[in-house]
C-alpha cells in the first residue's frame, strides 16, 4: 500500500503471536498482515474461525498489542487511547450490563465518550430511534433478545459519532429479519460516509454491503480487492431476468445456440459466487467435506 493513499485504517506488517503455556513454540495468530481501508469504505473481513480476523480487530482497537508491525486509525496509532475517540465497536455476541435499561446503556457509553449530559439525552433518543428500540427504551437488557442486543450494541457503537465503525460478526445468531435490519443500518452508515469494517462468515451479506473484501486465512491476507473484481469471471456474462416466461428463455437459448463459440454454461437462479471463491481460497474445505473425513 502506498503511503499516499487516504486511510481510515492502516495496518502494516502486523504480526501477533501468542505464547503457549509450558511450550516453547508460539501460536502465530496474525502473520505479517497489511491492509488499509479508505474513508467512507465498507470493508469486509472474511475468513474461517480462528483465521485471525478477531485478533486483527483487537489490535486495531488497542485491546491487545501487536508483536510487530503497526496499526493506525486516521493516522493515530491504535496503542493511543485517543484513537478510540473516532471508533465505534460492536463486539461479537455483545454482552452489556444486563441490569441497565436500553437508554441507560446508551447514556453510559455516551458518558465514556465524553458527551455532555444534554447531548446524551438527545443522542439516546436518536439512536434508539435509529435501531428501532424506542419501545424497549426502559426495559432492562436482561430481557432483550439476541437481535435487540445486537442493535443496542450497534447504537452503543455509534453514540460518540465515530468516523470508523468496527463490527465483529454483526449478524451472528440473529434471525433473518433482524439480520436484514442490521444490514440496512450498515447501508445507512455508508450513506453517511462512515467507514465500516465488518467481519462475517455470512458471505452473502458481505457481498451485499461491502465495497472491498479481504480474505484472511491462517493469519495471512490471502486475497484482497474490490468485491467486483474479486468475484468477476471475465469470460462469462450473467443475465438475471425477472418474470421471464419459458417462451422467452427458449428464445434466448435458441439465439445463443445460433452464435459460434458461445456456450450456455448454466441457467437457473443466481448463486453466491463469493462463497465459491471463499472456499477456494481457504483450501476448499466446506463443512460437508470436513464432516465426511
Amino acid at each position: 500500500m502506498s503511503k499516499d493513499l487516504p486511510t481510515a485504517v492502516q495496518i502494516k506488517n502486523l504480526t501477533k503471536t501468542f505464547p503457549v503455556p509450558f511450550k516453547k513454540e508460539k501460536v502465530v495468530a496474525v502473520d505479517n498482515l497489511s491492509l488499509s481501508v479508505m474513508p467512507g469504505e465498507v470493508y469486509g473481513l472474511i475468513g474461517p474461525n480462528g483465521s485471525g480476523k478477531s485478533t486483527t480487530m483487537k489490535v486495531l482497537l488497542g485491546l491487545i498489542s501487536a508483536t510487530s508491525g503497526s496499526s493506525t486509525v486516521f493516522g493515530m496509532s491504535s496503542t493511543e487511547t485517543a484513537s478510540r475517540g473516532s471508533v465505534g465497536f460492536l463486539p461479537e455476541n455483545p454482552y452489556f450490563y444486563k441490569y441497565l435499561t436500553g437508554a441507560e446503556t446508551i447514556a453510559f457509553y455516551g458518558k465514556l465518550c465524553g458527551l455532555k449530559r444534554k447531548v446524551i439525552k438527545e443522542r439516546t433518543s436518536e439512536l434508539l430511534n435509529l435501531v428501532e428500540l424506542e419501545g424497549a427504551r426502559d426495559r432492562r437488557l436482561a430481557g432483550y433478545s439476541k437481535g435487540m442486543l445486537q442493535r443496542i450494541g450497534l447504537a452503543q457503537a455509534l453514540v460518540g459519532r465515530p468516523k470508523l465503525v468496527v463490527l465483529d460478526e454483526p449478524t451472528a445468531g440473529v434471525d433473518p429479519a433482524g439480520s436484514r435490519k442490521i444490514r440496512d443500518l450498515i447501508m445507512q452508515l455508508k450513506d453517511q460516509g462512515i467507514t465500516v469494517i465488518l467481519s462475517s462468515h455470512l458471505l452473502e451479506q458481505v457481498q451485499e454491503v461491502c465495497d472491498r473484501v479481504g480474505i484472511i486465512f491462517e493469519g495471512k491476507l490471502v486475497r484482497e480487492g474490490s468485491l467486483k473484481t474479486l468475484i468477476e469471471i471475465e469470460d462469462q456474462t450473467e443475465i438475471v431476468l425477472e418474470n421471464a416466461g419459458s417462451d422467452l428463455l427458449k428464445k434466448i437459448t435458441d439465439l445463443i445456440n445460433q452464435e459460434n463459440g458461445v456456450n450456455l454454461i448454466r441457467s437457473g437462479r443466481p448463486r453466491t459466487t463469493l462463497e465459491t471463491l471463499f472456499l477456494k481460497e481457504t483450501g476448499g474445505e466446506s463443512k460437508d467435506v470436513r464432516n465426511e473425513s
Binding site: D4, P6, T7, P39, F74, M76, S83, K111, G114, K163
Partner: peptide, 25 residues
C-alpha cells in the same frame, strides 16, 4: 485525497481527548 486529510481528525481527536476525565471515572 491524501494522507494529510487525516490531520484534522487527528488533531480533533487529540484536543477532544482528556488524559484523565473525572466524569468518565
Amino acid at each position: 485525497m491524501t494522507v494529510e486529510n487525516n490531520e484534522p481528525i487527528y488533531n480533533e481527536l487529540n484536543s477532544k481527548f482528556k488524559l484523565f476525565s473525572p466524569s468518565r471515572v
